[in-house]
């Protein structure tokens, strides 16, 4: 087992363990921090899977953006009531059962050897350049639609929250 394989399995274990921690934790803030650990280890797995640009986007957008927004949300929804951030659990049996069944179903398909990786060396020369060219040529329409979607989501989120004080609670 060389160093690369060890790093790969280490980050896989970290991601799985932090996801399990989210499931078991009753504290929302600790769960958000464990989601941060999970997202960062998934970004490391992207790097090890020859997807550097996706990894950088994951770190910038998820770890830098979404997690900050989520932590803001946690702080805003706990400040008003003053209650501790404890979360109750319901439907434990149904959730565990459906999770295990879905995992068994997926593992049943994964175990079949239809997904064999070709063992030749992966050519990664100019992956970033290829992604940039793809955005401007083959994926230009989804790229523009994504821009419109981001603008609509930005305006919508600002409009939804800007009426906060106008209506009596």
């Amino acid at each position: 087992m060389n160093t690369l394989t060890f790093i790969f399995y280490f980050f896989m274990l970290t991601a799985a363990a932090s996801a399990t921690g989210i499931l078991l934790s009753r504290n929302v803030f600790k769960a958000a921090l464990m989601l941060l650990v999970c997202l960062l280890s998934i970004a490391a797995l992207y790097v090890l899977s020859f997807a550097e640009f996706v990894a950088i986007t994951q770190i910038l957008v998820y770890a830098g953006g979404v997690l900050v927004v989520i932590i803001f949300g946690i702080m805003l929804t706990s400040k008003l009531s003053g209650k501790p951030l404890q979360v109750g659990h319901t439907n434990i049996f149904a959730a565990v059962l459906s999770g295990i069944l879905l995992f068994a179903l997926l593992a049943n398909f994964i175990t079949d050897d239809v997904f064999a990786v070709p063992q030749h060396a992966v050519e990664t020369q100019g992956a970033l350049q290829t992604i940039g060219t793809n955005f401007m040529t083959a994926y230009s329409l989804p790229f523009e639609i994504a821009g419109i979607l981001l603008l609509a989501a930005l305006i919508g989120a600002a409009a939804i929250t800007s009426f906060m004080k106008s209506k009596k609670v």
């Binding site: 399995y9 896989m12 991601a15 799985a16 996801a19 399990t20 989210i22 499931l23 929302v28 958000a32 999970c38 797995l45 899977s49 989520i70 949300g73 946690i74 929804t77 979360v87 109750g88 659990h89 319901t90 439907n91 434990i92 149904a94 959730a95 565990v96 459906s98 999770g99 295990i100 879905l102 995992f103 997926l106 593992a107 994964i110 175990t111 997904f115």
Partner: peptide, 25 residues
């Protein structure tokens, strides 16, 4: 396969989190 197992595990954990937790965040 190992990456796919991890992704399946993460998806099932996310599903269980959505079903179990009594908090929208």
């Amino acid at each position: 396969q190992h990456l796919l197992y991890l992704a399946a595990f993460l998806f099932c954990t996310g599903l269980a989190v959505v079903m179990v937790k009594r908090n929208t965040i």
